[in-house]
Simulated assay, not measured.
Amino acid sequence: MISFEPLQILLIKRKISKMDFVEQVGISPSTAAKMWKNEYVALKVIDDICNKLGCSLTDVIEHIPDKKNI
């Protein structure tokens, strides 16, 4: 599973609200909602986030292995 928890932590540390994040990055509220639910978003969106926030991929997402495959 891909988790966007690192992004949520980054936004809290930088004191950026979810709505400010949506505006700064230029994504739709529905795309942001998918991210908060750990649903699929295009890699282009993740690339845009990294570029706009000046952060790395690991600041945005993390991989959580499926328990059944461990």
Rank of each mutant, 00 (worst) to 15 (best):
M1P: 09
I2V: 12
I2T: 06
F4P: 01
L7I: 03
L10E: 08
L11P: 00
L11N: 03
I12P: 08
I12N: 10
K13F: 05
R14T: 02
R14H: 05
K15F: 02
K15Y: 02
S17Y: 13
K18F: 15
K18P: 08
F21E: 02
V22Y: 06
V22T: 14
E23Q: 10
Q24M: 15
V25G: 01
V25F: 09
V25L: 10
V25K: 13
G26I: 04
G26S: 07
S28W: 05
P29C: 06
T31G: 03
T31N: 01
A32G: 06
A32H: 07
K34Y: 07
K37F: 00
N38D: 08
N38A: 00
N38K: 05
Y40H: 06
V41Q: 05
V41K: 02
V41P: 00
A42L: 14
L43F: 11
K44W: 08
K44D: 11
K44P: 00
K44V: 11
I46D: 07
I46N: 03
D47H: 14
C50P: 12
N51Y: 08
L53P: 01
S56H: 11
S56Q: 03
S56C: 03
T58L: 14
T58F: 15
D59E: 13
D59L: 05
P65D: 06
D66Q: 13
K68E: 09
K68F: 09
